[in-house]
Amino acid sequence: MNSMISTRGIARLAWAAALFALVVIVFGAFVRLSNAGLSCPDWPTCYGKVTWPVHEHEVDAANAAFPDRPVESNKAWREQVHRFLAGGLILTTFALAIWSWRRRRDLHGLAAVPLAASVFILFQALLGMWTVTWKLKPIVVMGHLLGGMTTFALLAYSALRLTIPPIANLRFPAAEKDKLWRLTAVGIGLVAVQIALGGWTSSNYAALACGLDFPSCLGQWWPGNMDFHEAFVLWRGIGVNYEGGVLDGSARIAIQLVHRIGAVLVFGHVAFAVVQRAARHVETRPFAVAVGIALLLQVSLGIANVKLGLPLPIATAHNGVAAVLLLSLLALLVRVRTAAR
């Protein structure tokens, strides 16, 4: 009984940590998409303050100390609040990892996942620092997004494993369950790649490289002036301010087209290989519905971003729903797992 109670408490903390991570992801997207990523030019303080300059004398002192980056109070609070939230998530993740390790016998190996999250989140904090000190370097910004999603996935997987039992119905063929597990794992991998492409698109300011044109791009299905070589140069050195982007239009168009192609591949696999197969069985049908809804919503938000000119609420929601799609796929993966997994 004590073991069950302890596991239930860990599950609640894991869900709290996962939801906390989702909030940090969405708020981080809000900060990045509202061009507030460099609104605090130093780290971890903001113009030398624990909070941010508000009063006139504080703003004057900050402007004198950082003449190349005048204070924008309406943006600075966003960046510093995001840092506070990230700090709270680090503490929550550590608490989960410590509790899981102390109850590792009850968790049967699952304790390794929160421990991995606690190690990974420290690297995520470094990426957050480099995002500022390396002035929105695209590879770092993309890595920071992937790091946040990975932390969220580890925390969510811990919570799901402690909540969702595997299928015990003997009428569900083992071969079918194993195939659905593999297809779902591939879907998670494709979604992860697409999230990386989305981060690369955003960090290079390529979201509107095709204007408001969709599904074509600038009136063409395959623009002839795309520069794929420049589009995917990952490392360009340190010292350049990447705010606003440094690529020309041909490279940004290439990035946008690759992101669209990735979306088609993800939609095709998840919709027709994962959702369709999971919907056949009563044990996995609710999960198929959840994945399908998240997938359709994500695609709709992506199209709306282009057609409406990247409105901040929709662009922010696009990041959040990507995490929800990842969560729904992880839930299905947990549902069809075997004892060996």
Rank of each mutant, 00 (worst) to 15 (best):
L107C: 03
L107R: 02
L107T: 05
H108N: 12
H108W: 07
H108T: 11
H108D: 11
A111M: 03
V113N: 02
P114Y: 10
L115P: 02
L115C: 10
L115Y: 00
L115N: 05
A116V: 02
A116D: 02
A116N: 02
A117E: 04
A117W: 01
A117F: 03
S118Y: 08
S118N: 10
S118M: 12
V119K: 00
F120G: 15
F120E: 06
F120A: 13
F120R: 03
I121A: 01
L122A: 13
Q124Y: 10
Q124G: 11
Q124S: 10
A125Y: 02
A125W: 04
A125M: 06
L126W: 14
L127G: 12
L127R: 05
G128M: 11
M129D: 05
W130G: 05
W130H: 08
T131G: 15
T131K: 08
T131P: 13
T131H: 14
V132E: 02
V132H: 01
V132P: 12
W134M: 11
W134P: 05
K135N: 13
K135I: 13
K135F: 11
K135D: 12
K135T: 12
L136F: 14
K137G: 07
K137P: 10
P138C: 07
P138F: 14
I139Y: 12
I139P: 06
I139M: 12
I139V: 15
I139D: 05
V141D: 01
V141T: 14
M142H: 03
M142E: 07
M142L: 12
G143E: 01
H144P: 15
H144C: 13
H144K: 04
L145S: 05
L145T: 10
L146I: 13
L146K: 03
L146F: 07
L146Q: 11
G147S: 08
G148F: 01
G148T: 01
M149Q: 11
M149W: 05
M149G: 07
T151V: 15
T151L: 09
F152W: 09
F152Q: 10
F152V: 09
F152M: 10
F152A: 10
A153G: 08
A153W: 03
L154P: 14
L154Y: 08
L155C: 10
L155R: 04
A156T: 15
Y157N: 04
Y157E: 06
Y157T: 12
S158K: 03
S158T: 15
S158W: 01
A159Q: 04
R161F: 02
R161E: 04
R161T: 05
L162H: 06
T163P: 06
T163V: 04
I164D: 01
P165I: 01
P165N: 07
I167H: 00
A168E: 14
A168C: 05
R171H: 11
R171D: 15
R171I: 06
R171Q: 09
R171G: 04
F172K: 06
P173G: 09
P173R: 01
A174L: 15
A174W: 09
A174D: 12
A175Q: 06
A175Y: 03
A175H: 06
A175K: 07
E176T: 14
E176M: 09
E176A: 14
K177R: 13
K179Q: 10
K179H: 07
